[in-house]
């Protein structure tokens, strides 16, 4: 991933900061400048909102053929998680056996290393999920 993009998103990735539409109250992650429900009425009404980081699995998969950057983790579990605030995100599910994963499984976000820029070894971090009940 190019470095400028990494710096641009660092706060959201580290702290799970999304947006709340002050017009309808809906919470979004990743953050949005416009609420797709309210559109023009939400302009300049999108406030930063920090997610609690708790949620449940919507669906999941076990990846056997990863991107080379994630090769050392293979096989690993990816999941789509719906947070308690109603936002949905995609992330790596760690410290879980695939046999135990199912829709509705309670998880929480944890800060982990996501990867490394190959050229200069810059390590970048972000959220992953692990079972709440572990």
């Amino acid at each position: 991933m190019p470095i400028p993009r990494f710096w641009r998103e660092i706060k959201q990735r580290y702290k799970g900061i999304g947006s709340r539409c002050e017009n309808c109250g809906k919470i979004y992650f990743p953050p949005r400048k416009i609420c797709p429900e309210c559109r023009r009425e939400s302009f300049q009404k999108m406030e930063e909102y920090e997610l609690e980081g708790k949620g449940e699995v919507v669906t999941y998969t076990k990846i056997n053929e990863p991107h080379p950057e994630f090769e050392m983790l293979s096989p690993y579990i990816m999941a789509i998680v719906e947070t308690e605030e109603g936002a949905r995100l995609t992330g790596h599910l760690v410290d879980a056996d695939i046999e135990d994963v199912e829709p509705g499984m309670k998880v929480e976000a944890t800060m982990r290393k996501l990867g490394e820029e190959s050229r200069d070894g810059l390590i970048y971090y972000g959220y992953k999920f692990w079972p709440l009940d572990r």
């Binding site: 991933m1 669906t59 998969t61 994630f70």
Partner: peptide, 21 residues
């Protein structure tokens, strides 16, 4: 790229999650 693949999702895995669902 910024909110799916950077976290380790592959193209295959996104369709795999649709299949699982």
């Amino acid at each position: 790229q910024e909110w799916e693949t950077v976290f380790g999702a592959t193209f295959d895995s996104l369709y795999a999650m649709m299949a699982r669902y």
